[in-house]
Amino acid sequence: MVLVISCDMSAKSHQDTEDTAQGETTLKEELNKKIKEQKVVMDELSNLKKNRRVYVQQPNSNIFFLADKGETLSTCKRALDSMKKDYQDM
């Protein structure tokens, strides 16, 4: 079994300053969805057996590279923390 991970580090790119409440609500819902997705990724990585391989997708491409499970987990954790902070700031 192989786990392919795509950690989304683009939470800030989705944060636009819109004047309307509807636009802000839409951004907040989108960010909330990304937070939930990131939590699933974290759970999957945390529960992998030691001998499983993890591949990370390169940004804006269909190329995957073998990655270290620990580094990938910490990168995804930082991304999740960043998304949570952005969500609270909204």
Rank of each mutant, 00 (worst) to 15 (best):
M1D: 14
L3E: 06
L3A: 05
L3C: 05
L3Y: 08
I5V: 15
S6H: 13
C7E: 14
M9S: 11
S10K: 14
S10W: 10
A11W: 11
K12L: 13
H14A: 14
H14T: 12
H14P: 08
Q15Y: 13
T17G: 13
E18T: 11
T20F: 01
T20D: 06
Q22S: 07
Q22Y: 09
G23I: 00
G23V: 00
G23K: 00
E24Q: 13
T26H: 04
L27E: 09
K28S: 07
K28R: 09
E29P: 00
E29Q: 08
E29C: 01
K33N: 12
K33C: 03
I35P: 00
I35L: 01
Q38H: 13
V40R: 09
M42S: 08
M42T: 07
L45K: 01
S46E: 14
N47C: 04
L48I: 01
K49L: 09
R52A: 14
R53N: 11
V56S: 08
P59I: 02
P59R: 06
N60M: 09
N60F: 13
S61M: 00
S61T: 14
F64E: 01
F65K: 10
L66C: 04
A67Q: 05
K69D: 04
E71L: 10
T72P: 02
S74E: 13
S74L: 09
A79H: 08
A79N: 11
D81Y: 05
D81P: 02
D81S: 11
M83R: 01
K84T: 14
K85V: 03
D86T: 09
D86P: 02
Y87N: 06
Y87M: 07
Y87F: 10
Y87K: 07
Q88P: 01
